[in-house]
Design a protein around this nucleic acid. Sequence first.
DNA 1: AACTAACTCAACCGCCATTTA
DNA 2: GTAAATGGCGGTTGAGTTAGT
Length: 273
Amino acid sequence: MGRQRAPCCDKTGLRKGPWSPAEDQKLSSYIRAEGHGNWRALPSKAGLLRCGKSCRLRWINYLRPDIKRGNFSRSEEETIIKLHESIGNKWSKIASQLPGRTDNEIKNVWNTHLKKRLALRGSNACGDEAKESSSSSSSFSSSSCSSSANSSISYSNPNIAEMEPFKGTSEIPYEQKTEDEFCFSLPSVFSFSENEVHLHPTVLEKISKIKDDRSWMAYLENELGLDDNQESVARDEVHQLGTSSSNNEILLEANIDPVSMYFQTWPSSPPTF
DNA sequence: AACTAACTCAACCGCCATTTA
DNA sequence: GTAAATGGCGGTTGAGTTAGT
């Protein structure tokens, strides 16, 4: 420790910055054919003008076939929050509990959404938190209100290896006590277990947007003292949306190979329909 | 329509841990 | 046992995008 070391590679003549489709294709096809082996040696073997580290990162964070893209589900967010509470910024360990998610992605979600949300939790009541999380671009909102009420997971469990996997769905009855609880429970109404259906990221994004919009509208209507029936109406609409068989069919139809989708749609953004 | 601020996320950097010679 | 090589991790940055004025 503390000893001097050479840089990971000679950076002269190496490309930096965003990866081009051709580079992705080279890297991807090389690793599929040969495996990555020695990362440092890989770029020259694969014909890439990139640092080995850069290749590794690109593969792990983007090209790996089992990568899951799209917004984080409510259960994923809760998992992150709870694991972070237990082990701190151990992103790779947290990522190991979330198949298909990368440490980098989790770190980004934490820094952009979850950290702020928890900060608000500390200073505000649940109502304010609902506003924040509903305006977030992240898919579902989690909250101390809902998670503490519905989770049996110990927050301070020091032994992560023994931690139970979190349920992808949680049953929340419609008889919520407050509008806040109702708003927080909305995402659960939609929780299609990811073990049951494989949703395309773009579909997930659309659904989460609908959910966010509706829960936010329901919240606003209550905050503004609009028709008392609004909440139940919104609740019914939400329920219908979440349980409609036609929606499920649409989602099932969206089971598309993410790798092939990726190579069909450059630049590196989630594919669009 | 133009400008600015805020946000997102892919990628880089540097350090630490582990493996190898 | 030691030093070098390599892999992996977490923090940070900055370009691109979106939202607000």
